[in-house]
Design a protein around this nucleic acid. Structure first.
Length: 770
DNA sequence: GGGCGGTACTG
DNA sequence: CAGTACC
DNA sequence: GCCC
């Protein structure tokens, strides 16, 4: 991008910095998404713009009418207009209060109204054209037009630092290299709902989720009808969406005698999201989407089969929401869309995630009567183990019943009732065998994909815990056999809380996630991700480089100060970033093995890491070397010897653990099978016999599993590390270690550790939570 | 509102 | 010590 | 972020 490079002057830095900040528009919660470059920037020159929810007056009254009457273009215009108002008054004057609290992101309840779209980039965007029903998709750009000023969520040490650009700031700083905006225009969306009109029950936007759905329908071309049948106009409602909280009877009473147009199809609210996911209007799957008058109770029960969310429980009084039957009289297709719904077509291509048929294979019906029943058997133990077992890990992976959650094995010693019951479906979630299959097999693949993107983003954020929470949530979602559609369902899953549950629902409903758009929009997103791929470069380093103006690998090579690791990391960035086929991992292992054999026939070796977990491809190669009798010291020498030999043979290309201390037992380096082949990250760990069990555990992972089982150990007053399982460790008030304690389990038996901890044995391939 | 794995190496 | 890394 |  920038032909010539020079270190930025101080002033340039400031400008650059200003240009980094953005003003987000955010609707559903106001947490901070901040790739906050924690730089020593003088705050004086920078103003803080108070975005303010000044416009908050817009209550629910605004909702419907506006949404209803305005074309998308109008909408957009309105938003722009609104934005500018606060802008004028927003001077350098303070706002500390506002911004400060926005950083603490507490509630998410308030913000979800019309205020929503308001905050927008100060830069004047070309106002949308008047073109009414143009083929363009103006409103879909809404979210991408946003920017916002950000506070610093955590980081007490840097409380007020937030840069903001004065209204003109962004524009004027165009001379700054790459800090300018990189707007990814949102991909154009097809107006799949063009020509249809719909009515909602209830027909308002009081519920945020409903509001989103309605907005989304409109964005994609649908017209929101004021009434079921607008007499004056020609509009005839083609779809009626029924909020799931409404039963058929409620709906009827809501309509107060108004008749449902013959042409109208009555569907539940999830139908729109389903269509969006397909990119066109699809025929509603009867049991899943069509809403109809319930029949006799017995009847409707038998009819509930799999598909629908668990909550429709027989015992669960009639709330029975969308688990309603097909409308008695078969609804006709609505006029317009009809042509677009070739039946054959629908049949032909199988929906990417059409749960019902697919998953019946596993467990057709179980969904409906989950929870309560299962508790009793375990309850006893659960009471005790509940607080000990970390939620996520010690439950069946399948967790099938959504109740799922915790409890369970952990304390096998005493009771083992639940243990054996459900363990058959491993293959299902062991979808890692086929690289690309995986995503297809999982009913929640789409959701997971989106959440993973968000996870990636949060990793760039420097938040230590959120990414972990996301990974646990994603892992939990992966275990679900049924598609999780609503936040309520999602919330029941252990590891998924309210915030992520809401996001799941948003994804399912709208097939997109606003938060993600904002995230991707950050001008530093790409640079940061790029730099973070470099071995030896973490977040802090990446930020420093960015603050120094570096944006490309080339910049770094030419002008940045690089550590030895980083230099290697950069030189082989692509190599290290490429997955290694299982076969090749094995080959690397064989090279090491053969050298070891030359050295001492008692030395043995095992390939660990994701290879041992059975993955088809690995990020690196992990090798554990053991010897039945060698002491640590001897092993250290073996390692030195081994490395020397590997170097000589040309196999080992780099050792990034070079200044290994005496007694060092690890090597982090790179190896290459043959000239011309990529370098691979190679880790070698020497393990004395008494530590082998623990080392197996550690080196097999995955990391979530490790964290979890270590936490469990700790909750039981033990300590698990790669050298063994320990007890009797004493700490003083300051948690300083007084006594190290003694090793409870040692030796090469991995299972012994599981046993001692009361954790049911899991094969390596069952330890995948990633 | 506080917890969130335990460790090794680098500079 | 903070940062980065390993699983 | 989630959970206690």
């Amino acid at each position: 991008m920038s032909p010539q490079y020079s270190m930025p002057s101080k002033e340039e830095k400031i400008q650059f910095f200003q240009s980094l900040s953005k003003v987000y528009s955010q609707d559903d919660d106001d947490e901070e998404l901040d790739l906050d470059l924690d730089l020593p920037v003088p705050t004086n020159g920078l103003s803080t713009s108070s975005e303010s929810a000044a416009s908050s007056g817009a209550g629910s009254t605004v909702g419907k009418k506006r949404l209803h009457e305005e074309s998308p273009a109008d909408l957009e215009q309105r938003k722009v207009a609104k934005v500018e108002k606060p802008k004028k008054t927003a001077g350098p004057t303070t706002s500390s209060t506002r911004t400060a609290q926005s950083g603490s992101n507490n509630d998410e309840t308030d913000s979800d109204d019309d205020v929503v779209f308001m905050k927008s980039k100060p830069v004047s965007r070309p106002a949308p054209k008047e073109t009414k029903s143009d083929s363009k998709v103006p409103s879909s750009l809404v979210s991408s037009s946003s920017t916002r000023s950000r506070g610093n969520a955590k980081r007490p040490d840097a409380p007020e630092r937030r840069s903001t650009m004065p209204a003109t700031g962004l524009v004027d700083t165009t001379n700054i290299p790459r800090a300018t905006e990189i707007r990814h225009n949102k991909k154009r969306e097809r107006m799949i709902f063009d020509g249809i009109s719909f009515y909602y029950i209830p027909n308002d936007t009081k519920n945020p989720v409903r509001r989103k759905r309605i907005a989304r329908l409109q964005e994609l071309g649908a017209v929101w009808a004021d009434d079921l049948n607008e007499r004056g106009k020609t509009t005839i409602v083609s779809y009626i969406f029924v909020d799931k909280k409404h039963s058929w009877d409620m709906m009827i009473s809501y309509l107060k005698g108004r008749k449902i147009p013959d042409a109208a199809i009555v569907v539940n609210e999830e139908y729109s999201g389903h269509c969006i996911e397909f990119g066109r209007i699809v025929q509603p799957i009867p049991k899943r989407f069509l809403v109809s008058k319930p029949q006799t109770e017995a009847d409707s029960l038998s009819n509930i089969p799999s598909l629908v969310p668990a909550k429709s429980n027989p015992t669960d009084h009639n709330v029975s929401p969308y688990s309603l039957k097909i409308k008695p009289k078969k609804p006709k297709q609505p006029p317009q869309p009809e042509s677009q719904i070739p039946d054959a077509d629908e049949q032909a291509e199988t929906p990417p995630d059409d749960p019902p048929p697919k998953f019946e294979i596993f467990k057709p019906v179980e969904v409906s009567k989950p929870v309560d029943t299962k508790k009793d058997a375990l309850s006893d133990m659960i009471v005790k183990s509940k607080r000990i077992a970390d939620a996520s890990m010690f439950i069946e992976p399948e967790s099938d019943e959504e109740e799922v959650s915790k409890g369970e094995p952990a304390f096998s010693k005493t009771s083992m009732p639940g243990g054996s019951k459900i363990f058959k479906f491993e293959q299902h979630f062991l979808c890692n065998k086929g690289p690309q299959k995986q995503s297809k097999d999982c009913p929640n693949a789409r959701t997971i994909e989106m959440l993973e993107k968000l996870l990636e983003y949060y990793e760039l954020t420097g938040d230590q815990w959120r990414p972990i929470a996301y990974r646990k949530a994603i892992a939990a979602l992966k275990r679900q056999k049924e598609k999780v559609c609503t936040s309520k369902e999602a919330k029941k899953i252990s590891g998924i809380g309210q915030r992520i549950a809401d996001k799941i629902e948003e994804i399912v409903e709208t097939n997109e996630l606003r938060r993600l758009d904002y995230a991707m929009d950050d001008p530093n997103y790409e640079t940061l991700s790029l730099f973070l791929k470099i071995y030896g470069c973490g977040l802090q380093q990446a930020k420093v480089w960015i603050s120094q103006g570096h944006r490309t690998i080339d910049d770094l090579l030419k002008h940045a100060k690089l550590s030895k690791h980083q230099r290697i990391g950069i030189e082989h960035l692509d190599d290290f970033d490429t997955r290694i086929p299982r076969e090749e991992v094995k080959e690397h292992g064989e090279v090491v093995r053969s050298v070891l054999r030359e050295m001492d026939s008692d030395l043995s070796m095992e390939i660990m890491g994701s290879y041992r977990r059975g993955k088809a491809d690995c990020g690196d190669i992990d090798i554990m070397v053991t010897h039945p009798t060698a002491t640590a010291n001897e092993l250290h020498k073996v390692l030195e010897d081994l490395l020397e030999r590997l170097f000589e043979s040309g196999f080992l290309k780099a050792d990034m653990t070079s200044s290994r201390r005496m007694g060092g037992m690890t090597m982090h380096g790179a190896s290459q099978l043959r000239p011309g082949m990529p370098w691979r990250r190679l880790d070698i760990l020497m393990v004395p016999n008494e530590c082998v069990g623990a080392a197996l555990l550690y080196f097999t992972g995955d990391d979530i599993f490790n964290r979890s089982i270590r936490l469990l150990a700790r909750k039981k007053g033990l300590k698990l590390n790669q050298n063994g399982l320990w007890k009797g460790r004493q700490t003083d008030a300051n948690s300083k270690v007084i006594t190290e304690g003694t090793r409870v389990v040692s030796g090469p038996d991995e299972k012994a550790i599981f046993d001692y901890l009361g954790v049911e044995w899991r094969e390596p391939h069952e330890r995948i939570y990633h």
